[in-house]
Design a protein around this nucleic acid. Structure first.
Lengths: 249, 249
DNA sequence: CTTTCCTGTCTTGTATGCAAGATAGCCAGA
DNA sequence: TCTGGCTATCTTGCATACAAGACAGGAAAG
């Protein structure tokens, strides 16, 4: 938008570089992000880097271990479940509320699915990872609601980190199929069906994870000794929580 | 949570103080938040204050005008619409996905609604504003999904800022009624109905706004001169957007 | 060989200093 | 009276210096 400002551009660049690195699976969960290294890399002082890190932290993408360093988050199994649930809620709610698919929207999604197909054939896995996540963001963009787009972008980034941690093999064809079916329902104007398909699709992907694989081999020991978990989860929780939201398909 | 750490507590305190100030309508949109004043107020250096501001900025709650100062956001009419739409999407999606209301959940909501009623009678408007927003957060908490709770908390804060800008009179009784109806549907186990009622409720509140009232009297002139808008909207938008999501009732 | 402790180094945490833009108020000139 | 410009002051932007915790590696003691 306003690229005339030199100042603001840099911080956003650091943030967006890291986010897009995650979105295309170039940055793994747990990656250390040294303030000094990033500072020299972007030719700025640590101050600016820190600001970017703080922002990314509130977006749930990085995490700081006090006086040890910044790390790309490694979502726990519980967090993984929460992320998928949040996506189901938002994406289903979004599709269900849609009324029509414009011509440009149809074209954009069609082009996207074609690219998915060709990149899948070409075997460019990083690009494919990016596209697979981006499909959902593109749907959000159709709604024209920037708030939802931003939320889903961050959730998608976390989803990709989750895949890198818990996904043994990448069923790209299956995902692509799911996307196509959602698109078909949308084209048919059946957004209720599209919402259902979206939930099913996310379920499929989630089911493809092995959430028993612990990214932190010490976590079991840690919890049995009732030590604090290694990562600060998300934002502050004010009241105690009693979980029980269920699948809606 | 982890109150043992002195360090981390302070930043969160600044952030949460401001957010809860907004949630209870004690802080108006457009309020200037001077780094120096906050620093002396919380007995920390500007550095910490800045970090809190950066976080609040990514949460869409404050906004910085370069070298002029930090301000609590004054959502434009377009942003206001987007916020309500996002809330409809998320809250409806959430309720629709719920399966059962636990006993504690029922009690919590019941107690909440009772407090709404008594505070409404007592006429404590700030507390009432807080409660009216908090009802929706409490529903999110029933899902046990911390991600959704955080998202809705921030959206609720923005909603309250929007009310302060565009709401001529506060139809508290109507809102309370809406809450009660949602609760009844939930108790009856009819979450589809609860979702519909939630959308209707948000529609009602949104309809009660006068979105033609410009908070910035110069905005019309500004736009006719095609100057940039006075506030940086939300996060970065990567692709151009074509708006058209519609009401779902 | 094992254990313990110590110290050097690397990390973030925090404060502070200075730069630079924005603004308001005043003063001078017409 | 009105207009233009200058300056004093207040704001954030950014870099840097130093504090302090974490950790690794080695030396010394058993």
């Amino acid at each position: 938008m306003q690229d005339s400002q030199t100042s603001e551009t840099t911080q956003k660049t650091i943030e967006e570089t890291i986010v897009s690195g995650i979105l295309s699976a170039k940055i793994r969960p747990g990656t250390r992000l040294s303030e000094n290294q990033l500072a020299t890399l972007f030719s700025v002082s640590r101050t600016r880097v820190r600001e970017a890190m703080m922002r990314l932290e509130t977006r749930g993408i990085v995490h700081v271990s006090p006086r040890r360093g910044w790390f790309v988050v490694e979502p726990s199994a519980e967090e993984a479940i929460a992320v998928y649930e949040a996506r189901r809620v938002i994406e289903a709610g979004l599709l269900r509320g849609m009324r029509a698919l414009t011509d440009e929207g149809r074209k954009a999604l069609d082009a996207h699915l074609n690219e998915e197909k060709s990149v899948m054939a070409a075997g460019d896995r990083q690009r494919l990872t990016y596209l697979m996540g981006d499909f959902h963001i593109r749907i959000a963009e159709l709604s024209g609601n920037a708030i939802i787009v931003d939320i889903l972008r961050d959730l998608t980034a976390r989803t990709i980190l989750i895949s890198m941690l818990y996904q043994s093999e990448f069923h790209a064809a299956q995902s692509h199929d799911g996307h196509c079916r959602i698109f078909e329902a949308m084209q048919a104007g059946d957004f209720v069906r599209a919402a259902e398909l979206s939930v099913e699709h996310l379920d499929e992907v989630e089911m493809g994870l092995d959430l028993t694989t612990r990214p932190d081999p010490l976590s079991e020991l840690r919890s049995s000794l009732s030590l604090p978990p290694k990562a600060v989860p998300s934002g502050p929780t004010v009241r105690p929580k009693k979980p029980q939201l269920q699948r809606s398909n």
